[in-house]
Design a protein around this nucleic acid. Sequence first.
RNA 1: GGGCACGUAGCUCAGUGGGAGAGCACUACAUUGACAUUGUAGGGGUCGGCAGUUCAAUCCUGCCCGUGCCCA
Length: 886
Amino acid sequence: MLEKTFQHGALEEEHYKKWENSASFAAKPESNNAPYAVMMPPPNVTGSLHMGHALNMTLQDILTRYKRMKGFDALWQPGTDHAGIATQMVVERQLDEKGTSRRDLGREEFLNKVWEWKEESGGTIVRQLRRLGATPDWDRERFTMDDGLSAAVRKVFVQLYKEGLIYRDKRLVNWDPKLLTAISDLEVEQRENKGSMWHIDYPIEGEQAQTIRIATTRPETMFGDTAIAVHPDDERYKHLVGKYAMIPIANRLIPIIADEHSDPEKGSGAVKITPAHDFNDFEVGKRHDLPMVNVFDIHAHMNENAPDGYQGMDRYAARKKILEELENLDLLADEESVVNSMPYGDRSGVVIEPYLTDQWYVDAQTMAKPAIAAVKEDKIKFVPKTWENTYFAWMENIQPWCISRQLWWGHRIPAWYGPDNDVFVGADEADALAQAREKYGEDVELRQDEDVLDTWFSSALWPFSTIGWPDETPELKKYYPGDVLITGFDIIFFWVARMIMMGMHFMDDIPFDTVYIHALVRDSKGQKMSKSKGNVIDPLELIEKYGTDALRFTLTAMAAQGRDIKLSEERVEGYRNFGTKLWNAARYCEMNNCMPQPGFDPSSVSYTPNKWIITELARTEQAIEQALDSYKFNDAAQAIYQFVWGSFCDWYLEFTKPVLSEEGDKADEIRQTTGWLLSQIVTLLNPFMPYITEELSEKLFEEQGNGAEGFVFQQQWPEYAESLQDQDATDEMGWVMQFISEIRSVRSDMNVPAGAKLSLIVKDSAAQTQERLNLYEEIISRMARLQSIEIKEDAAPAGAIQTVVGEATLILPIADIIDLDKERARLEKEIEKLSSDIKKIDQKLGNKKFLDNAPDEIVNEQHTRKSNAEKLRDKLSAALKQLEVA
RNA sequence: GGGCACGUAGCUCAGUGGGAGAGCACUACAUUGACAUUGUAGGGGUCGGCAGUUCAAUCCUGCCCGUGCCCA
């Protein structure tokens, strides 16, 4: 006998262990089954499970389980990402607590420490994925710094270098002065800040006391100015172009040039040009061949190019001092409050400096072309499609991708430098040495580039590097391209776009044909979850409290396309209740000996309620299938929820309840049907709620010898013949349900005590109705709490309430209970509603244009609706009249 | 400043060119019946506003208002 409720905690762990020990999540490349491949977005090895992961992984798991049950050879490829900066920061923080640092340890020792940390703590996230019930092929778990993946990274680097698609360049990068590394554009967040615009006068050379006024938000970079620019058409400054201005304090002369970059409308119309510290100015500098004067060191402290007294000063301290000094020189004309957007490092949170350094770049513009085409040509489809706009907008304006990072943790760049700084790029040092020997004619000492690659460089290779590339493995052959990538919109640029670029280049094919972009999980108020706001909902806490199934189902039910999820605990509780409902229905089945029988054939049933519920089941399965095939996860969840609770529990089990105490063929058929239905529900619900369904299957089907060998997810996904759907049965049971609901509704409106059993008189009934009443008298009487049903054509007795189902009038004589006023009000209200409906329909039918233009079926439909409404109104009016007489 | 979403019941959200839906919340009634982690019933919405297209608009188009996000 099942316990009273499903105890999720211990059972979940127990089931997961059994699943995993059986190695049954494994892909089978040697099988002939069609492949279904999903690449798990590798979570950061430093990470722990957050709500976004929970959603992302749940959806992938549902698809994987579903396709696996449908007979596909499913590969869900798991793994983790080495997360360069994030991981290095974690370990550095630990070193800091011990009063040491990575520089104290040295590169090799530090990397040992990171690996040590990874071995000890890197497993958190994958353990948590297990709690979520995720079923990737764990034996194939990869890490972006595995030997195989690292080899793939080197090969890609070397090849792109040889093709000229990777190059070294000195240009402005986004420099993080806290982490002391370059970062890519994508790792920079623009944030709006209140700041100041300072207006500063620069004296003009040779013009006594004449100045040119510039406006800047960054006075501390003025020592790096190499020009002042005015717009070529700006009449105010035409006479000054070609002259020289003097940088105050530094007293260095710079030319006044004409360039369209300066906007006459903004500030004074003259701007200082600091090519080494501003992206726009860098372009101006290149156009005019200006010198690039860098005034900061790597910490964004003033360097030797700043005047004495400033060197070594922090950028903001220097700003303050410069402003004071300008004030004293009477050259600070104005300070204006402005809101400007400033670049921040997404990891360090400090203001990023545009900084002139040598870095490695990928020619993203070239690589983006085939990647854009793949989406344009619909080889890759985004779901929802609107994300394609986002993709194109970025890809079509893509900038060179800075891939070098001044870190230690990551893939070290496979480039070596000779004594004259010539670079040799090769798969390993031997390769580089060989190249060097060729060049120098002798062995020389080479020094490897100190930098590592952007983490996203290796994850961009994930769809093929994890399955063996560059080797021609069976896996690579079978699972590339994959089927769907499920991820959040926040990494479309970081990851999705780059996978497409790398896939197109190295595999000459798309990495996946569908990109499903899921919602962002917010808190119940719609706020983005963040540690600093303290509104983070921990999926593990919800799992603890309500069970994995409840959390999974909640996320699934809320995963509507194109809308963020506002997660509230009440919803999770509600879906936990859904599990309990199913659990209790299963207990009921167990108590009544309704278990699946071998050889049961759903097409053989003859009792109409059985035919009806089988029809409903078949339609539910179709709905789930259709929903999952089009990534409408919420529709799939709703379909199964509605079937289990709304059809199976609320109606079917109630219809059949009394028969189960009987013996005989009918009772037998119901028992078999009920048992079969339970087994079908367990199967259909399994991808969504794997634990409770597994537990039911094990306890009820397996242990008690009622079929079902192995785990539920190893079973076949059910397919129901179209012929199982019986519209007549649907109509008939629909009528029964309406009949019962109608009586219940009237009873409730009239405050008839639930315990009171009423007599029912049915008037004006057609033969079919009488036949149905005869067939379902017992069911209707019980569920509508009637003591008798009588078919009579006499006028309704005094003090009866009346209602209508189809052509028949239902009369409930309850003179002793009835509240006449209340009944009158109820009838009047209904009649009023009907009259207004009829009026609306009349308006339509009286409109010639409508009759001329609307399709016939629509016009006919309106006629039918009108006539039905009229019949109903007439009957209710008669009832009302009867009431007045009484 | 440019772009993309979204605005439907108290809340969270589905949905559709032709009769406004679900869950939760709320109200009433029901307590040892598989299930109170329940059942039955009920109330509640000019589908953000204004115009246009159409025989017909909550749905399509435009503008406006509001909210959120991305990019500059």
